[in-house]
Amino acid sequence: MMLDIRDIMEIIPHRQPMLLVDKVEILEEEKRAVGYKGVTYNEPFFAGHFAAEPVMPGVLILEAMAQTTAVLLLNREETRGKIGYFGGINKAKFRKKVQPGSLLRMEIEVVKRRGPVAVVSGKAYADDGLAAEGEMTFMIGE
Protein backbone atom coordinates (compact mmCIF):
# COMPACT_ATOMS: atom_id res chain seq x y z
CA MET A 1 0.00 0.00 0.00
CA MET A 2 1.46 3.38 -1.06
CA LEU A 3 0.59 6.43 1.04
CA ASP A 4 1.09 9.91 -0.38
CA ILE A 5 1.64 13.22 1.41
CA ARG A 6 -2.08 13.73 2.14
CA ASP A 7 -2.33 10.29 3.75
CA ILE A 8 0.86 10.87 5.75
CA MET A 9 -0.44 14.17 7.15
CA GLU A 10 -3.55 12.35 8.39
CA ILE A 11 -1.37 9.88 10.30
CA ILE A 12 1.46 11.99 11.78
CA PRO A 13 1.34 15.59 13.06
CA HIS A 14 4.43 16.87 11.22
CA ARG A 15 4.09 19.78 8.79
CA GLN A 16 6.48 21.83 6.66
CA PRO A 17 9.30 22.54 7.16
CA MET A 18 9.62 19.48 9.46
CA LEU A 19 7.72 16.99 7.33
CA LEU A 20 10.59 14.98 5.86
CA VAL A 21 8.82 12.19 4.01
CA ASP A 22 6.86 12.45 0.74
CA LYS A 23 5.59 8.87 0.34
CA VAL A 24 5.49 5.73 2.44
CA GLU A 25 5.01 2.24 1.09
CA ILE A 26 3.75 -0.23 3.69
CA LEU A 27 5.28 -3.56 2.68
CA GLU A 28 4.02 -5.56 5.65
CA GLU A 29 1.54 -4.03 8.10
CA GLU A 30 3.19 -3.08 11.41
CA LYS A 31 6.43 -4.79 10.27
CA ARG A 32 8.12 -3.17 7.24
CA ALA A 33 7.89 0.08 5.31
CA VAL A 34 9.86 2.17 2.84
CA GLY A 35 9.69 5.96 2.95
CA TYR A 36 10.76 8.36 0.22
CA LYS A 37 11.93 11.97 0.33
CA GLY A 38 12.90 13.97 -2.74
CA VAL A 39 15.70 16.18 -1.41
CA THR A 40 15.57 19.55 -3.19
CA TYR A 41 17.72 22.68 -3.22
CA ASN A 42 14.77 24.48 -1.62
CA GLU A 43 15.09 22.70 1.74
CA PRO A 44 15.52 25.43 4.40
CA PHE A 45 18.48 23.73 6.10
CA PHE A 46 20.64 23.91 2.96
CA ALA A 47 20.96 27.71 3.35
CA GLY A 48 23.40 27.17 6.21
CA HIS A 49 24.45 23.50 6.13
CA PHE A 50 26.82 24.05 4.43
CA ALA A 51 26.51 27.12 2.22
CA ALA A 52 29.41 26.16 -0.08
CA GLU A 53 28.59 22.42 -0.10
CA PRO A 54 24.94 21.68 0.80
CA VAL A 55 24.60 18.50 2.88
CA MET A 56 21.46 17.21 4.62
CA PRO A 57 22.14 17.12 8.38
CA GLY A 58 22.46 13.60 9.76
CA VAL A 59 19.93 14.29 12.48
CA LEU A 60 17.35 15.12 9.78
CA ILE A 61 18.09 11.86 7.97
CA LEU A 62 17.33 10.09 11.27
CA GLU A 63 14.18 12.21 11.62
CA ALA A 64 13.03 11.15 8.14
CA MET A 65 13.55 7.52 9.20
CA ALA A 66 11.59 8.22 12.39
CA GLN A 67 8.70 9.76 10.46
CA THR A 68 8.59 6.72 8.19
CA THR A 69 8.48 4.54 11.32
CA ALA A 70 5.67 6.62 12.82
CA VAL A 71 3.58 6.19 9.66
CA LEU A 72 4.19 2.44 9.80
CA LEU A 73 3.24 2.14 13.48
CA LEU A 74 0.28 4.54 13.44
CA ASN A 75 -1.38 3.51 10.18
CA ARG A 76 -4.27 1.74 11.89
CA GLU A 77 -7.69 2.96 12.94
CA GLU A 78 -6.97 2.30 16.64
CA THR A 79 -3.76 4.37 16.58
CA ARG A 80 -5.01 7.37 14.58
CA GLY A 81 -4.53 10.56 16.55
CA LYS A 82 -1.68 9.11 18.62
CA ILE A 83 1.95 10.20 18.34
CA GLY A 84 5.13 8.16 17.96
CA TYR A 85 7.83 9.54 20.26
CA PHE A 86 11.54 8.81 20.04
CA GLY A 87 12.71 6.71 22.98
CA GLY A 88 16.30 6.31 21.83
CA ILE A 89 18.75 5.89 18.99
CA ASN A 90 21.49 3.25 19.01
CA LYS A 91 24.25 2.30 16.59
CA ALA A 92 23.66 5.34 14.36
CA LYS A 93 26.20 5.55 11.56
CA PHE A 94 26.47 7.99 8.69
CA ARG A 95 28.01 6.55 5.54
CA LYS A 96 27.34 8.93 2.64
CA LYS A 97 26.42 12.58 2.12
CA VAL A 98 22.84 13.37 1.14
CA GLN A 99 22.82 16.37 -1.18
CA PRO A 100 20.22 18.30 -3.15
CA GLY A 101 18.80 16.30 -6.03
CA SER A 102 19.03 12.99 -4.15
CA LEU A 103 16.16 10.60 -3.61
CA LEU A 104 16.32 9.55 0.03
CA ARG A 105 14.85 6.07 0.59
CA MET A 106 14.32 4.91 4.18
CA GLU A 107 13.87 1.18 4.82
CA ILE A 108 12.34 0.39 8.21
CA GLU A 109 11.82 -2.97 9.86
CA VAL A 110 10.30 -3.63 13.29
CA VAL A 111 12.73 -5.75 15.30
CA LYS A 112 10.74 -5.99 18.52
CA ARG A 113 7.39 -4.75 19.77
CA ARG A 114 5.85 -4.89 23.22
CA GLY A 115 2.71 -2.87 23.88
CA PRO A 116 3.31 0.80 23.04
CA VAL A 117 7.09 0.31 22.62
CA ALA A 118 8.75 -0.68 19.35
CA VAL A 119 12.38 -1.14 18.37
CA VAL A 120 13.14 -0.74 14.67
CA SER A 121 16.11 -1.11 12.40
CA GLY A 122 16.42 1.60 9.79
CA LYS A 123 18.58 2.25 6.77
CA ALA A 124 18.56 5.34 4.59
CA TYR A 125 19.85 5.27 1.03
CA ALA A 126 20.69 8.25 -1.17
CA ASP A 127 20.68 7.36 -4.85
CA ASP A 128 21.21 3.65 -4.03
CA GLY A 129 24.19 4.17 -1.69
CA LEU A 130 23.81 3.58 2.05
CA ALA A 131 23.73 7.03 3.67
CA ALA A 132 22.79 6.21 7.28
CA GLU A 133 21.64 3.40 9.51
CA GLY A 134 20.62 2.87 13.10
CA GLU A 135 18.34 1.24 15.60
CA MET A 136 15.57 3.37 17.08
CA THR A 137 13.17 2.92 19.97
CA PHE A 138 9.68 4.43 19.84
CA MET A 139 6.88 4.95 22.31
CA ILE A 140 3.32 5.36 21.07
CA GLY A 141 1.53 7.95 23.16
CA GLU A 142 -1.47 10.24 23.22
Rank of each mutant, 00 (worst) to 15 (best):
A64C: 05
R95C: 11
P100M: 03
K31Y: 01
P116S: 14
R105F: 00
G58H: 07
K97V: 12
E78K: 10
K97N: 11
Y85A: 05
N90F: 05
A70N: 07
K91Q: 14
A51D: 14
L19E: 09
Q16M: 14
V59E: 02
E107C: 05
Y41R: 14
G84P: 00
L60R: 10
R32N: 09
L72I: 00
A64Q: 06
T79N: 12
A66Q: 05
H49F: 08
A33N: 07
L73S: 02
E25F: 01
E29Q: 13
Y85S: 04
Q99K: 15
K91W: 02
L60E: 08
M18Q: 09
N42P: 02
K112G: 00
M106W: 02
M106V: 11
F46T: 06
Q67N: 07
I26H: 04
G35E: 07
F45W: 15
R113E: 15
T69Y: 06
K97F: 12
M56I: 06
F94W: 08
M18N: 13
P57T: 08
T68W: 10
G58E: 04
I26F: 01
F50K: 03
A70H: 07
E30C: 02
R114T: 12
R105C: 07
Q16D: 15
L20I: 10
K31H: 03
L60D: 08
V59S: 09
Q67I: 02
R114A: 06
A52Q: 15
E78M: 00
R114H: 11
G88Y: 04
I26N: 05
E63F: 08
F46R: 10
R32D: 07
T79V: 03
G115H: 05
K82E: 00
K96F: 13
V71W: 07
G38S: 15
A52P: 00
N90T: 10
M56W: 08
V71N: 09
A92H: 06
G87A: 15
M106C: 15
V39Y: 10
L62W: 03
L62N: 13
K82L: 03
G48N: 12
F94V: 10
V110S: 01
A66T: 02
R113L: 00
S102C: 15
N75Y: 05
Y36L: 12
V34T: 14
G81P: 04
K23I: 01
V110A: 03
P116G: 09
R95K: 15
L27V: 12
A92S: 10
P54K: 10
L27G: 01
F86S: 06
K91C: 02
S102H: 15
F86G: 03
V21P: 07
I89N: 08
T79K: 13
F50R: 03
V21R: 04
E29F: 02
P57S: 04
G84C: 08
M56C: 00
P116L: 10
G88S: 03
P54Q: 10
E25N: 12
K82R: 13
S102M: 13
E25D: 14
M18A: 08
K93G: 04
L72E: 09
A33D: 11
L103R: 12
S102G: 01
N90R: 15
